[in-house]
Design a protein around this nucleic acid. Structure first.
Length: 566
RNA sequence: GCCCCUGUAGCUCAGUGGAUAGAGCACUGGCCUCCGGAGCCAGUGGCAAGGGUUCGAGUCCCUUCAGGGGUACCA
């Protein structure tokens, strides 16, 4: 992709003191409004060094600079030096790049095949998949696609919560109140009811918690009865999760969950001991982190069984050996930030230099009417219900507006699911989300369906034109305000992907796609595309095609389909 | 108590230290002899408070206030 700042920076070398190209490049910015120019040099910082007012610096440069290829006009405005590109040349170069790039447009090879582990989704076995789990799943999935697009080898790991005290709780509940045939029929919902009942009863009778811990210890010691129940619960859950992953079309390269590390944890504990990090405190084995301002990281409970941190430490060491990752990214709720800070620090204390490559990507929590979701209290909205409501709503709209559409069911799924995913990825991930059916099922405005609709509109125009876009179009014909704005926005795409990757923030792309769709729709309403003038039509179709490519590529980075007809 | 996050329009949110703080929803009023109205145009309305750093602060620092989260054997 060509870089317009680079063109300008190059031409400025030698004209601003002895600043080199890189230094100049970093000073350049894009004006807030393209009518002010395409690239701008703010002269305020130069003011001190050059002992002139920013205004004078800009004016002098505007007068003295020799003509620059590809630049039509240079203007000094209130301390800024603004560069206006040759629109025809810019448009031509850009559209050619996009049309030739196709579904690869925007991709890069920054990663150069280096591997990145992305740990995401990680639902807990025996708990239903609810709206809260959606966030980790869709954010992680998008980060996976973004990194892959940028040339990384990605390993998506579903670190299933398939080990831990909650199974002890479930076993206790099952043995006390469970019914085998009911569970076989009711599946995960029955398990959830048992889990909720356990917590209700445990509030009255604290001995239940003790019993649960005992059962978990039996699991860790290889007790057959405990393990066979555990396995059964796990199967039921995995079946259920798979339905959701199928709907979302999310896949993983590894399902190595917490239980996978069972027989490796002993080695981790021994290593900690050898390195002199493990100390006993209140009958538990811990790593003291007081001097770093953290509470202790508990490695073994007083009964000798493992914890979350023990398993995460073990998993990280295993993954480094197996994948030799350049980065290992953990997509979990912000509530776990302290936990990650603690065990990242332990990895560092163990002497592993790659501790700096462990990255926690936190996100805000989902609440409903101001109340936190809680599996324990049975206060949940199941993801399956959300997806099926969204699909139902889409089906209704299609039936009303486009009843003859082929593949109605599949398109309804793609749009319904797209609406949910797009909505989840719309805000900065750290922001808490207040769940609202009304908002979720409103497909107007800045939504997935709006972007998908805009994409389908580009496809529809191209198929109506009934011809391939000729690559030899006359760009000087498409230089209106709306057209140039659209072209400029298309140009921004590769940079936005890079931003999304660097910030680990898929919402950068989500918002960009809304902007692009808006620019496209304005262009669409202002200009007729399928006009009689063939050259004009061809030039406009080139813009339409390029827009469609970018919308489609962008949606796919979010894990959303871009159907050609809706 | 201590630590972390958040605070921008009635609501949901954008906003690399730089030019006039932008969208959407909702509400009001327009736009179909026109390529798809899941659309387009217009109106209404805002940086929690107070200090500081800077040529320049919604953005950085400090204080206060408000909401959320975390804080040793859950994950």
């Amino acid at each position: 992709m060509f870089d317009i700042k680079n063109i300008v920076a190059e031409s400025l070398v030698g004209h601003i003191g002895d600043l080199n190209k890189q230094q100049i490049y970093e000073m350049l910015e894009c004006p807030p409004n393209y009518e002010m120019g395409d690239v701008a040099l703010p002269c305020f910082k130069l003011s001190k060094v050059m002992r002139q007012s920013p205004d004078n610096i800009a004016k002098n440069l505007a007068e003295k600079l020799p003509a620059i290829t590809s630049v039509d006009k240079i203007e000094a405005v209130s301390g800024y030096l603004n560069f206006f590109l040759n629109k025809k040349e810019f448009t031509e170069k850009l559209l050619n790049t996009v049309l030739r790039g196709g579904e690869k447009f925007g991709s890069a090879n920054i990663g150069n095949g280096k591997s990145i582990v992305i740990d995401f989704s990680a639902p807990n076995i025996a708990k239903p998949f609810h709206i809260g789990h959606l966030r980790s799943t869709v954010i992680g999935n998008s980060l996976y696609k973004i990194h892959r697009f940028m040339g990384y080898e990605c390993i998506g790991v579903n670190h299933l919560g398939d080990w831990g005290t909650q199974f002890g709780k479930l076993i206790v509940a099952y043995k006390k109140w469970g019914d085998k045939s009911k569970i076989e029929k009711g599946q995960i919902k029955e398990l959830m009811d048992l889990y909720v009942k356990f917590h209700e009863e445990a509030e009255k009778d604290s001995e239940l918690d003790e019993e649960a811990r005992n059962w978990f210890t039996r699991m860790e010691n290889g007790d057959e009865e405990a393990l066979s129940l555990w396995k059964w619960f796990k199967e039921i859950s995995l079946n259920e999760f798979q339905k959701v992953y199928d709907l979302l079309e999310v896949t993983f390269d590894s399902y190595a969950g917490e239980s996978f590390y069972n027989n490796m944890m002993k080695a981790t504990v021994e290593e900690l001991e050898e390195k002199g990090l493990l100390i006993e405190s209140e009958n538990a084995q811990i790593v003291d982190l007081e001097e770093y301002g953290y509470p202790p990281c508990i490695i073994l409970k007083k009964d000798g069984s493992s914890l979350y941190a023990t398993r995460d430490l073990t998993a990280a060491i295993y993954r480094k050996k197996k994948y030799n990752f350049e980065k290992c990214i953990y997509v979990t709720g912000a509530a776990q930030t302290l936990h990650f800070n603690q065990w990242f620090k332990v990895i560092e204390l163990m002497g592993y230099k790659w501790s700096k490559d462990l990255i926690h990507v936190p996100f805000g929590l989902v609440s409903i009417q101001g109340e936190k979701l809680s599996t324990r209290k049975g206060k949940v909205i199941l993801l399956e219900d959300i997806l099926s409501e969204a699909i139902k709503k889409t089906t209704e709209i299609i039936e009303a507006k486009n009843p003859d559409l082929a593949d109605k069911e599949e398109v309804a799924r793609q749009i319904g699911v797209g609406a949910v995913v797009f909505g989840d990825l719309s805000n900065n991930r750290i922001k808490d989300i207040s769940f609202s059916w009304e908002e979720l099922l409103n497909f107007d405005g800045e939504t997935g369906p709006y972007v998908q609709y805009s994409h389908a509109r580009t496809c529809s125009l191209l198929s109506k034109a009934n011809r391939e876009v000729d690559l030899d179009f006359r760009c000087e014909l498409v230089n209106s305000k709306e057209e140039y704005k659209l072209v400029k926005t298309i140009y921004d795409f590769p940079g936005k992907i890079a931003d999304a990757m660097n910030e680990l923030e898929p919402s950068v792309i989500t918002r960009y796609l809304v902007d692009l769709a808006q620019d496209f729709n304005r262009f669409y309403h202002e200009h007729s595309i399928l006009v009689d003038d063939n050259e004009l039509k061809n030039a406009r179709l080139a813009i339409v095609k390029a827009t469609g490519i970018v919308l489609s590529n962008g949606l796919s980075l979010l894990g959303i389909h871009a159907p050609e007809r809706v």
